[in-house]
Amino acid sequence: MIINNLKLIREKKKISQSELAALLEVSRQTINGIEKNKYNASLQLALKIAYYLNTPLEDIFQWQ
């Protein structure tokens, strides 16, 4: 199981879903879906999320 901390980290950094989506060149709905565990981010997208949030990938998506 993967624990998804994207919403928590994004909100801590005061970045909206729309802002993050624009940086990543995806839709806001994609970010929303990832945060609600409706969609799994591809490895490429997960790495981009970590880069733009300046946060280690394993802090955003944790295996349990």
Results as ranks from 00 to 15, higher is better:
residue 19 E to T: 11
residue 35 E to Y: 03
residue 17 Q to Y: 04
residue 61 F to D: 00
residue 19 E to G: 10
residue 46 A to N: 03
residue 11 E to W: 06
residue 38 K to G: 07
residue 36 K to P: 01
residue 42 S to A: 05
residue 41 A to G: 05
residue 16 S to F: 07
residue 44 Q to E: 15
residue 10 R to D: 02
residue 41 A to W: 06
residue 6 L to Y: 00
residue 49 I to R: 00
residue 19 E to L: 07
residue 24 L to C: 15
residue 30 T to I: 14
residue 6 L to W: 02
residue 43 L to P: 11
residue 14 K to L: 09
residue 54 N to C: 11
residue 25 E to R: 15
residue 12 K to P: 01
residue 3 I to D: 05
residue 56 P to A: 08
residue 61 F to H: 00
residue 44 Q to S: 14
residue 53 L to A: 02
residue 60 I to R: 01
residue 64 Q to G: 13
residue 62 Q to H: 09
residue 4 N to L: 09
residue 9 I to F: 08
residue 58 E to W: 10
residue 39 Y to D: 06
residue 46 A to S: 07
residue 46 A to L: 14
residue 58 E to A: 11
residue 33 G to P: 01
residue 33 G to N: 15
residue 40 N to P: 15
residue 15 I to S: 00
residue 18 S to L: 11
residue 5 N to W: 09
residue 8 L to P: 07
residue 7 K to P: 03
residue 20 L to P: 00
residue 33 G to Y: 12
residue 47 L to K: 13
residue 34 I to Y: 02
residue 10 R to V: 04
residue 2 I to M: 11
residue 45 L to D: 02
residue 39 Y to P: 02
residue 54 N to E: 14
residue 51 Y to F: 14
residue 32 N to M: 14
residue 48 K to S: 07
residue 39 Y to W: 12
residue 40 N to A: 14
residue 49 I to H: 00
residue 2 I to L: 12
residue 18 S to I: 11
residue 29 Q to A: 14
residue 37 N to D: 07
residue 42 S to F: 04
residue 51 Y to N: 07
residue 18 S to D: 13
residue 6 L to A: 01
residue 18 S to N: 12
residue 49 I to G: 00
residue 22 A to I: 11
residue 32 N to V: 15
residue 11 E to V: 11
residue 52 Y to L: 12
residue 43 L to Q: 08
residue 18 S to F: 09
residue 43 L to E: 07
residue 45 L to R: 00
residue 3 I to Q: 09
residue 12 K to T: 11
residue 31 I to V: 11
residue 28 R to L: 15
residue 31 I to Y: 04
residue 4 N to Q: 03
residue 4 N to T: 03
residue 37 N to V: 03
residue 28 R to K: 13
residue 1 M to F: 13
residue 61 F to G: 02
residue 36 K to E: 15
residue 12 K to D: 08
residue 45 L to S: 00
residue 62 Q to R: 11
residue 39 Y to G: 06
residue 42 S to G: 10
residue 47 L to N: 09
residue 8 L to Y: 11
residue 13 K to C: 13
residue 61 F to M: 02
residue 55 T to A: 07
residue 2 I to Q: 08
residue 61 F to V: 02
residue 56 P to E: 07
residue 56 P to Y: 04
residue 50 A to E: 03
residue 29 Q to D: 15
residue 54 N to L: 06
residue 16 S to D: 04
residue 47 L to F: 08
residue 15 I to V: 10
residue 58 E to Q: 12
residue 1 M to L: 13
residue 23 L to A: 15
residue 6 L to N: 01
residue 26 V to C: 08
residue 9 I to M: 07
residue 59 D to I: 08
residue 27 S to L: 02
residue 53 L to Y: 02
residue 39 Y to H: 11
residue 28 R to F: 09
residue 17 Q to L: 11
residue 51 Y to H: 11
residue 17 Q to T: 08
residue 53 L to P: 00
residue 44 Q to Y: 12
residue 7 K to N: 05
residue 57 L to D: 03
residue 4 N to K: 04
residue 44 Q to M: 10
residue 4 N to I: 08
residue 61 F to P: 01
residue 63 W to I: 07
residue 60 I to H: 01
residue 36 K to G: 09
residue 3 I to N: 09
residue 19 E to K: 14
residue 29 Q to E: 15
residue 41 A to H: 03
residue 55 T to C: 08
residue 5 N to M: 07
residue 48 K to D: 05
residue 20 L to K: 00
residue 53 L to S: 02
residue 59 D to K: 10
residue 29 Q to G: 11
residue 32 N to W: 09
residue 5 N to L: 07
residue 25 E to Q: 15
residue 12 K to W: 07
residue 43 L to K: 12
residue 41 A to M: 14
residue 22 A to G: 11
residue 28 R to Y: 09
residue 64 Q to W: 07
residue 64 Q to D: 14
residue 10 R to L: 07
residue 21 A to Y: 03
residue 2 I to D: 04
residue 12 K to V: 08
residue 18 S to Y: 11
residue 63 W to T: 06
residue 43 L to N: 06
residue 7 K to C: 09
residue 34 I to K: 01
residue 41 A to L: 15
residue 50 A to V: 05
residue 16 S to E: 04
residue 61 F to K: 01
residue 64 Q to P: 12
residue 39 Y to E: 10
residue 56 P to H: 06
residue 58 E to C: 12
residue 33 G to C: 15
residue 10 R to K: 01
residue 40 N to R: 15
residue 38 K to W: 12
residue 46 A to F: 06
residue 52 Y to K: 05
residue 16 S to Q: 05
residue 54 N to W: 06
residue 49 I to M: 06
residue 59 D to S: 09
residue 40 N to D: 09
residue 33 G to M: 15
residue 26 V to G: 01
residue 40 N to E: 11
residue 45 L to I: 08
residue 52 Y to F: 14
residue 27 S to N: 08
residue 30 T to R: 10
residue 59 D to F: 10
residue 10 R to E: 01
residue 59 D to A: 10
residue 13 K to Y: 08
residue 25 E to T: 08
residue 54 N to S: 11
residue 44 Q to H: 13
residue 54 N to G: 11
residue 46 A to W: 13
residue 47 L to M: 13
residue 55 T to W: 04
residue 11 E to M: 13
residue 38 K to A: 11
residue 3 I to C: 14
residue 55 T to D: 02
residue 64 Q to I: 08
residue 63 W to A: 05
residue 21 A to V: 04
residue 52 Y to D: 00
residue 15 I to N: 00
residue 33 G to K: 14
residue 35 E to K: 02
residue 17 Q to S: 06
residue 15 I to W: 05
residue 49 I to L: 07
residue 21 A to S: 06
residue 7 K to W: 05
residue 17 Q to D: 03
residue 47 L to I: 12
residue 64 Q to N: 12
residue 7 K to G: 07
residue 23 L to H: 12
residue 53 L to E: 01
residue 62 Q to G: 11
residue 6 L to P: 01
residue 62 Q to A: 10
residue 30 T to L: 15
residue 26 V to Y: 03
residue 28 R to Q: 14
residue 22 A to L: 11
residue 52 Y to A: 14
residue 62 Q to D: 06
residue 28 R to N: 07
residue 41 A to P: 15
residue 49 I to W: 01
residue 16 S to G: 06
residue 12 K to N: 11
residue 54 N to I: 04
residue 28 R to S: 11
residue 52 Y to N: 04
residue 14 K to S: 10
residue 20 L to N: 00
residue 6 L to E: 00
residue 60 I to D: 01
residue 20 L to A: 01
residue 8 L to Q: 15
residue 39 Y to A: 09
residue 22 A to V: 10
residue 43 L to I: 11
residue 44 Q to I: 10
residue 47 L to V: 12
residue 26 V to T: 06
residue 8 L to N: 13
residue 2 I to F: 12
residue 14 K to W: 05
residue 33 G to W: 13
residue 50 A to D: 00
residue 23 L to D: 06
residue 60 I to W: 02
residue 52 Y to Q: 07
residue 30 T to V: 15
residue 18 S to P: 06
residue 42 S to H: 06
residue 53 L to I: 04
residue 8 L to A: 15
residue 22 A to F: 10
residue 15 I to D: 00
residue 33 G to T: 07
residue 58 E to L: 09
residue 26 V to W: 03
residue 41 A to C: 15
residue 21 A to C: 04
residue 53 L to H: 03
residue 9 I to L: 09
residue 16 S to Y: 04
residue 16 S to M: 05
residue 61 F to T: 01
residue 25 E to F: 10
residue 32 N to L: 09
residue 15 I to A: 02
residue 61 F to R: 00
residue 3 I to W: 07
residue 23 L to W: 14
residue 4 N to F: 07
residue 29 Q to V: 10
residue 51 Y to P: 00
residue 13 K to S: 09
residue 51 Y to M: 10
residue 37 N to T: 04
residue 40 N to K: 15
residue 32 N to S: 14
residue 60 I to Q: 01
residue 34 I to H: 02
residue 41 A to R: 02
residue 42 S to W: 05
residue 57 L to M: 10
residue 17 Q to A: 07
residue 51 Y to Q: 09
